[in-house]
Amino acid sequence: MAIDLAQFRLPEAVNMPRIGATPIVVIGLLSASLFGLFYLAALNNPGIVRPPKPVAAAPERPVAQPVREAATPVPSVPAPPAAPAPERPRPATRAELREIQTLLKAAGYDPGPADGLMGPKTHGAIAAFRRDHGIAAGAEPDSVLLEAVRAARR
């Protein structure tokens, strides 16, 4: 059984004022704009939204070769050990970044407030410190930078 709401009427005894469409539209627009403001604030706050970190590709597994029986035995030569890949430095945590900012300020660089967030001043101070001390430039602060700043303090 379907009820057609357009045909539904309240009894005449109930006198309710009829609401026009204008307040509903205004409330809807205000809600949408408020949601939009919060959404834009979240997009502009790097502490809330961070770009995804790149995922390293899984190492390829060697494909098993079919076993062939050779007429003459081939002496096996041990393969030279592969050189281990250099480990990438670990990105700094927020507490470590706060320590880096404090140590940079003590070393005479201006990283801004020691809040553990990467702002333009912190980025500039890190770039200047890396340039002055001959450390390879990186996109974000890492464990190598932390150790270098600690060593420069001594």
Rank of each mutant, 00 (worst) to 15 (best):
R18Q: 07
A58Y: 03
R131C: 00
T122Q: 00
A13P: 01
G116A: 12
L104T: 04
P84S: 07
L104V: 07
P46H: 08
P80C: 00
P81G: 02
T22H: 11
N44L: 13
I19Y: 13
A2Y: 00
L37V: 13
A83K: 13
A92S: 15
D142K: 05
R18A: 06
A128I: 03
E69M: 15
A2P: 04
A21S: 08
V144D: 14
P46W: 05
R9T: 12
P75M: 09
L103M: 09
P11E: 13
G112I: 00
R88L: 14
G134E: 12
A95I: 04
I19E: 15
D115F: 08
Q65D: 11
G112K: 06
V14C: 07
P23C: 13
M118D: 01
K105P: 00
M16S: 14
A128L: 12
P111I: 00
G138M: 10
P23S: 14
S33E: 06
P66C: 03
P91M: 12
P80D: 00
V63C: 01
Y109A: 10
I135E: 11
P51Q: 09
G124P: 03
Q7L: 11
E99T: 10
A21W: 04
R18P: 01
A79R: 15
I48Y: 07
R50P: 02
R130L: 06
A85I: 04
P80I: 02
E140S: 12
A114Y: 00
P62G: 06
T122G: 12
N45C: 11
G28P: 05
L103V: 05
